[in-house]
């Protein structure tokens, strides 16, 4: 077992753990915003680690794999946060309010923040 295989295997296991936690989060979280957080933040790191690990393992035979893996990493680093942002924004615009485990059901911290900003501008 070479050094590249050990380092790459570490990244593979790390990525699998994060992907598993992301899937578990989608299953367990109470509302759409929490599920988005689990399903995009955790899986971004998971997918990136898996692809990077594959690139490291192949470094022994073929150095072009790590370059391709880097390109994919950059693509994921852009596309995954943007898409999750768009989903969350669409949910907010569609008036889906977060799950709140208190008596004040209409609490909306982001709306208060926007209103405060508008007041300050005026």
């Amino acid at each position: 077992m070479s050094l590249f295989e050990i380092i790459g295997g570490f990244f593979l296991v790390l990525g699998s753990i994060f992907l598993f936690l992301g899937g578990l989060g989608i299953f367990r979280m109470p509302d759409v915003y929490n599920r988005l957080q689990a399903g995009t933040k955790a899986t971004t790191l998971g997918a990136m680690s898996v692809i990077f690990g594959v690139g490291i393992i192949q470094l022994e035979n073929d150095w072009t794999w790590i370059v391709k893996a880097m390109v994919i990493l950059i693509f994921i680093a852009f596309s995954n946060p943007i898409s999750s942002h768009a989903l969350a924004r669409a949910m907010y615009k569609g008036k889906t309010y977060p799950f709140i485990k208190s008596k004040d059901k209409d609490m909306d911290a982001y709306k208060e923040y926007i209103d405060n900003q508008k007041m300050e501008e005026e």
Binding site: F75, I82, A86, R89
Partner: peptide, 18 residues
């Protein structure tokens, strides 16, 4: 229906050529 946010705008401008 709604105009997209600036994050989506600049991000899709970056991703479109790729």
């Amino acid at each position: 229906l709604f105009p997209s946010s600036s994050i989506v705008k600049s991000g899709s401008k970056l991703l479109f050529p790729a």
